[in-house]
């Protein structure tokens, strides 16, 4: 029965491997939702497997035995996790939780600092910053805002500016920051899930690109706006942005907009769905095993 715990530990690797297929065969909005589910299931599997192993393994220590008045033989029968595994699992679990806490803390601090920008008077949902470099982003929260520098506004002709505003507005109306937050938390819990986080980051941009193309009723116009904005940012001062993976994919986004509109081919994502379902079953089984172990410990 404890075999399922080890299945859970392998699940994130399998789910990460399914990521590219999901991105490729689903339209961006559907892909982001499915990828976010996969990453949440994978993070859950990681945490739960480590918890079960830690409880099972550490139950062998003398103090726990004395406290629980359980017989070592009965425990061994219910729970074949070696003590060493328990120690390693507990250490990994603690590391994962510390990383998650650190990520959450950084995020809260950055959002608080950005409140100063959010507090600026807005025209509708737009805040313009009088800076010469080209930059634009969606600032989620209440109220959500589109922040654009004067440098970016001047770099684009009026119809391409409409694409930019529609793109950022799509981030806000579809609550893209929530998918981003889940992806980031999952990657903090299990670094293997960084690949899925990158897929989600790209999917979210593609989703907003498609929404903007629809808003201005022209994929070609959306592609040109994106290309021009990207070229305008090449004269950005300071060190290059940390998110290098997005940089490599501007050309991919422009290319996707110049191709025909995306359609979902759901049959192709069956393997990913089956992997997620199998993980969910393994999660349930491991939970039963944990309960059995605790029952033996605390009769």
């Amino acid at each position: 029965m404890y075999f399922t715990v080890y299945v859970l530990l392998l699940a994130p690797a399998v789910l990460v491997a399914a990521g590219p297929t999901v991105s490729r065969y689903l339209a961006p909005a559907a892909a982001v939702r499915v990828l976010t589910c996969l990453t949440a299931v994978a993070a859950g599997a990681t945490v739960w497997a480590l918890t079960v192993l830690a409880v099972g393994g550490l139950a062998h220590t003398a103090q726990v035995q004395a406290y629980a008045h359980s017989s070592p033989r009965r425990l061994a029968a219910a729970d074949p996790v070696p003590y060493g595994f328990g120690v390693i699992a507990a250490a990994l679990l603690a590391t994962a939780l510390v990383r998650l806490a650190a990520t959450r803390w950084h995020r809260a601090r950055e959002l608080r600092a950005l409140d100063a920008v959010r507090a600026r008077p807005a025209a509708g949902d737009l805040i313009v910053l009088p800076a010469d470099h080209a930059d634009a982003y969606a600032l989620p929260g209440r109220p959500g805002r589109i922040v654009v520098t004067v440098g970016m506004l001047r770099a684009l002709p009026v119809d391409e500016r409409a694409v930019l505003l529609a793109h950022e507005r799509a981030h806000l109306t579809h609550h893209h920051h929530r998918y981003a937050a889940i992806a980031q938390a999952a990657a903090a819990l299990n670094p293997l899930l960084g690949r899925l986080r990158d897929e989600i980051a790209f999917g979210v941009e593609r989703w907003a690109d498609e929404a903007a193309a629809e808003a201005v009723a022209s994929r070609e116009l959306a592609a040109r706006s994106l290309a021009r904005a990207a070229l305008a940012t090449t004269c950005l001062p300071g060190p290059p942005p940390a998110l290098a993976y997005l940089r490599h994919r501007i050309a991919a986004r422009v290319g996707a907009l110049r191709a025909t509109g995306p359609t979902s081919r759901r049959r192709r994502v069956w393997p990913a769905a089956v992997a997620a379902l199998a993980t969910a079953v393994a999660l349930a089984d491991a939970t039963v095993a944990l309960v059995r172990c605790l029952n033996t410990l605390l009769p």
Binding site: R107, P241, A242, L243
Partner: peptide
Amino acid sequence: DRFAVLQRFVDGL
């Protein structure tokens, strides 16, 4: 890592 805090239009090239 700003990805989780805000979504940018383009991030360099």
